[in-house]
Design a protein around this nucleic acid. Structure first.
Length: 785
DNA sequence: ATGCCTCGAGTTCA
DNA sequence: CTCGAGGCAT
């Protein structure tokens, strides 16, 4: 056995490699070994130390957990007090801060260190001869609690310093925090296993350090950044803050990469602005930034006011959370009848805007939060723009406030509000008898992505409906200029508003002319948009496109038995039935007839796509109908045995069995067929298969696109073309343009200011194209793969 | 049956 | 953007 494979050497080697791995991960942010490898090293070290207990040292990485649970925390006095910071909320306050320093020091634009203000817990770490010996919370600034055992479990905190040149005693101050990803993951795990769910990352970090059992702290995903100096004995440090932080890094202490050196008020405010923009994208929560005068001589000269230094200040971001009072919960009825509770709030400023409404999603959400009218609630505007109610403040609850219940009747039409078995949403059962659903249906029909009737907004739709000009979307196409003007006159009269006038005192009419023209322009519609505009449940843009491109003709679609729809990609039983149900309603067919009568034309009707031949087979249709026990395989046998689809309807039970179908399947089929409506559906479906086959061209111009079968995703802002144009051009080459990134995505086109989708793509290792690459590809699609 | 992956639907404010 | 839920691959 050679000298460097003795247990002592092996232990030393393993410890060095583990320390290096931690250093690369937490300080350099550049891990070089996978987690599994790290775990392997740790296990190896544990095994060696178990076999050779004499080799165990207190600063071994295996000793991070090991202390027994304590019954309380000892007090620790901070020799150098841990400071609190003054706050600035406005640019003026920052200007005042800088001016005070410049005046007292007699220097213009001194150098500042600008740092993110982490939302965690301030702590102090004491290293003696390079070994971590004591860690304490801030407490009241002069006395904190000894949480050494808990801090030892945090991998970002080195148990001994690297390199050389550290003073005999070094106190490092910094922030312990919980990165968002770790917080989410921890909570997900806790929810699944019935553990304690943490309210937010900040509370998570604080609570974790106050655990009496370090083994619990070890489970929590905590991290640490150093940002200040405490006591120093027996050694010297550089004469500036930024140089000290650089030294910290060399010694293996993690320091945020976001810290910068800036000058002048403009430099400070620019940093604040940039951090504000990046805030949502950071892996941890920050509640502002901190500016510190960089040179220690200047800091000493500035001194303190009470406990806060005059040489540093925290510039806070506007609060993302605010409390306000929930004044009412209203019910909003959507296009599909969904009854959505909306919180009416006492107006409050959140992250720079006034919030008065917030969605409560559905009744379950209200029950979860236990929100009641009159409650004081916390409102948040997080990464997205949409405000939400985070929780109620139970202390301010009126003890007599009743639990909120979904009203039994629709506030718009009085119909019953019902909930489907197993569904989350409650719906108004009034359908098109409900004025709210009618208005929403019309608004959807007219919307940009549907028929695109420019200028027909909510206000006009409301008036047209309320004053009886329009009951269905078809009525839009019989309106004339005078109808609009009369409608406006009556609306003004009703509301007591004064009609708008143009020069010369005449009543304004241009808006009405524009509307008539916009409605006329919408008469030429593509089948895809028209189908989408109808507002069939489960048929959005994508499904409308599928129906249009595969079937091609409105007349065909509106009379097709529903099982046929399920042959198309992404259309299953639920969606197929929904389409069929829509066209089964005589009222809907009448509306379509009226639209066509009043001049709506489908611009791009065509024969069914040749692609249809590949999927158009009788067994699939039979299997889709949902006859008990009748799988595709059985359907095939059945058809072979009976010699055709229509024979099934006439067949007696024993004939079915003769056809080679098991007894139970045969009797199930027979029982199913007993109902006339089902026989009708079956025979119509069988006939439709034949008809469709006859209509579908055998083959044809199914040319292979270079992107056939590939899914691509667009994100960010493109300069040379709009997102719509890019989508169309990619689709023309055979691509499917999806809205979210997954591992199946072929590539992501990232424009400027790309956000989460780009991050997701990077995470999944999906190919990323910039705009130039897209342009090059579109110019010569055949040249690239 | 289970677990992705998409799609549909609903939502706020300037 | 985010949920819920449908479709489909495994």
């Amino acid at each position: 056995m050679s000298a460097d494979t003795t247990p002592a050497h092996q232990v030393a080697d393993l410890r060095r490699r583990i320390d290096d791995a931690n250093y690369r991960y937490y300080v350099l942010d550049d891990p070089d070994i996978p987690d599994a490898e790290y775990d392997r090293l740790m296990r190896e070290l544990q095994a060696l130390e178990a076999a050779h207990p004499q080799l165990v040292t207190p600063d071994s990485p295996t000793r991070r957990v090991g202390a027994v649970p304590s019954s309380g925390f000892a007090e620790v006095r901070h020799a150098v007090p841990m400071l609190s910071l003054g706050n600035a909320f406005t640019d003026e306050e920052v200007g005042d801060f800088v001016r005070r320093i410049e005046e007292r020091l007699g220097r213009a634009e001194p150098l500042f260190s600008a740092e993110p203000k982490l939302d965690g817990l301030a702590i102090s770490l004491r290293y003696e001869h390079g070994v971590f010996v004591l860690g304490a919370t801030r407490g009241d600034g002069s006395t904190g609690e000894d949480v050494t055992a808990n801090l030892r479990t945090i991998r970002a905190i080195p148990l001994h310093l690297r390199g050389e040149g550290w003073p005999e005693v070094l106190e490092v101050r910094g922030e312990v925090f919980m990165p968002r990803a770790g917080f989410e993951k921890y909570n997900e795990h806790a929810r699944l296993h019935g553990g304690k769910v943490l309210a937010n990352p900040r509370n998570g970090a604080a609570g974790s350090l106050r655990q009496l059992d370090p083994a619990i702290t070890a489970q929590r995903p905590l991290a640490f950044y150093a940002y200040a100096l405490g006591t120093v004995e027996g050694g010297t440090l550089p004469d500036s803050h930024s140089a000290t932080l650089a030294r910290f890094r060399e010694w293996g202490l993690p320091v945020s990469e976001l810290i910068e050196q800036v000058r002048g008020v403009a430099g400070l405010l620019d940093y604040y602005q940039r951090m504000g923009e990046r805030r949502d994208g950071l892996p941890f929560d920050i509640d502002g930034v901190v500016y510190k005068l960089d040179d220690y001589a200047g800091q000493r000269e500035m001194g303190f006011v009470s406990r806060a230094p005059r040489w540093a200040i925290a510039h806070k971001f506007p609060a993302l959370e605010q409390s306000t009072v929930l004044e009412a919960i209203d019910i909003q009825i959507g296009r599909t009848g969904a009854a959505t509770p909306v919180a009416r709030l006492r107006p409050v400023q959140v992250a720079g805007v006034t919030v008065t409404n917030a969605t409560l999603h559905n009744a379950d959400q209200i029950a979860r939060l236990d929100v009641r009218v009159g409650d004081t609630v916390i409102v948040r505007r997080a990464g997205d723009v949409i405000p939400e109610i985070v929780r109620v403040v139970p202390e301010y609850r009126d003890p007599h406030a009743p639990v909120w219940r979904m009203p039994e009747r629709c506030p718009e039409c009085g119909s019953e509000i019902v909930r489907e078995e197993g569904e989350a949403v409650w719906r108004c059962s009034g359908e098109l008898a409900c004025p709210a659903q009618r208005k929403e249906a019309i608004a959807h029909f007219a919307s940009r992505r549907a028929m695109d009737i420019d200028g027909l907004g909510d206000r006009w739709i409301e008036n047209l409906c309320d004053l009886g000009y329009v009951a269905s979307v078809a009525d839009l196409y019989k309106l004339e200029l005078d109808d609009f003007l009369e409608m406006k006159r009556r609306a003004d009269e009703r509301d007591g508003t004064v009609p708008e006038t143009v020069k010369g005192g005449k009543v304004a009419t241009k808006w009405a002319e524009n509307l008539v023209q916009a409605i006329d322009a919408s008469r030429n519609a593509s089948l895809e948009r028209f189908l989408f505009a109808l507002g069939i449940a489960h048929v959005g843009e994508s499904t409308a496109k599928t129906l249009s491109s595969w079937l091609g003709d409105l007349d065909l679609i509106r009379h097709l038995p529903w099982p046929l729809f399920t042959l198309l990609p992404d259309v299953g039983g639920e969606v197929g039935r929904s389409i069929g149900h829509f066209f089964d309603q005589p009222g809907n067919q009448q509306v379509i007839d009226a639209l066509l009568e009043r001049g709506v034309r489908i611009a791009d009707a065509h024969a069914p796509s040749p692609k249809l031949r590949a999927v158009l087979d009788m067994p699939s249709v039979l299997a889709a109908i949902g006859i008990p026990k009748l799988t595709r395989l059985r359907a095939e046998q059945l058809l072979a045995g009976l010699g055709g689809g229509s024979a099934i309807i006439q067949a007696q039970a024993h004939q079915l069995e003769l056809a080679g179908v098991p007894k139970d399947t045969a009797s199930a089929l027979h029982a199913w067929l007993a109902e006339p409506a089902r026989r009708g559906l079956l025979s119509a479906s069988v006939a439709a298969v034949e008809q469709l086959l006859a209509l579908t061209p055998a083959s044809g111009n199914v040319q292979a696109g270079p992107l056939d079968g590939k899914t691509v995703v667009l994100t960010g802002t493109l300069v040379s073309l709009t997102r719509e144009e890019a989508k169309e051009r990619l689709e023309a080459l055979g691509a499917k343009v999806a809205g979210s990134v997954s591992k199946k995505t072929a590539f992501v086109v990232a424009g400027s200011e790309a956000g989460s989708k780009l991050a997701k793509a990077e995470e999944l290792g999906v190919e990323i194209w910039d705009e130039a690459r897209l342009q090059a590809f579109l110019a010569h699609p055949e040249a690239m793969s």
